[in-house]
Computed example of a mutant assay.
Amino acid sequence: MWKWWSVWGSVVLALGLGTGFFPGSSTWATVDHCYVRMGDWTPDETRCTGHWSTAGFTVTGGVHGVTVGGSEWPAIGPQQPDGWYEVRVSDSAHNHSAVAVPGAAVVYPALVWLVRVVLLLVVVASVVVLVNRARDRWYLRAYERELRNR
């Protein structure tokens, strides 16, 4: 039985920390810097860094899924030799709902909600199994008492 609970507990802990639902964690990632490299025949590449909190610790790392573009993202520095240049992060794009682990955050809205729904389903399934096991034990003990009293 302890193996079952250790696996489910680990899954709930990992999903809860990743989605920011534990104390000291945040469901938001703040974008600090973004870099863009223009593509000739391919879409522009973006690379953003930011910070968020996980389990009470502020973590800095890559923020994946930030949509960079338009007039709100002007270049603020010269182009580097490798083709990357820094753009100013617009005020409306500083904070994003995110799934975050200590090294990276993902801000794709569909993925964020998918992970949150999976977390909810895992917690609900765990509670249902716990209640059913407790009920089954109660019925078993009641049956054993009935057999002893005969």
Rank of each mutant, 00 (worst) to 15 (best):
W2R: 10
W4V: 12
W5D: 08
W8C: 14
A14D: 09
L15K: 03
G18R: 01
G20Y: 08
F21L: 15
F21Y: 15
P23F: 05
G24H: 02
S26I: 12
T30M: 10
C34I: 03
V36H: 02
M38H: 12
G39H: 04
G39Y: 02
D44Q: 04
T46I: 05
T46F: 07
R47P: 00
C48E: 00
C48I: 03
S53F: 10
S53K: 14
S53L: 15
A55W: 01
G56I: 13
G62C: 07
V63E: 02
G69A: 05
E72R: 12
W73Y: 10
P74T: 06
I76N: 00
P78Y: 01
Q79D: 05
Q79P: 02
P81W: 11
G83C: 03
Y85N: 01
V89S: 01
D91C: 04
D91Q: 09
A93C: 09
N95I: 10
N95H: 11
H96Q: 06
S97Y: 13
S97G: 06
P102Y: 00
P109T: 04
A110M: 07
R116M: 05
V117R: 07
V122H: 04
V122R: 02
V123P: 03
V123H: 03
S126G: 13
V127L: 13
V127Q: 09
V128Y: 14
V129A: 15
R133H: 13
R137S: 13
Y143R: 14
L147W: 06
N149R: 15
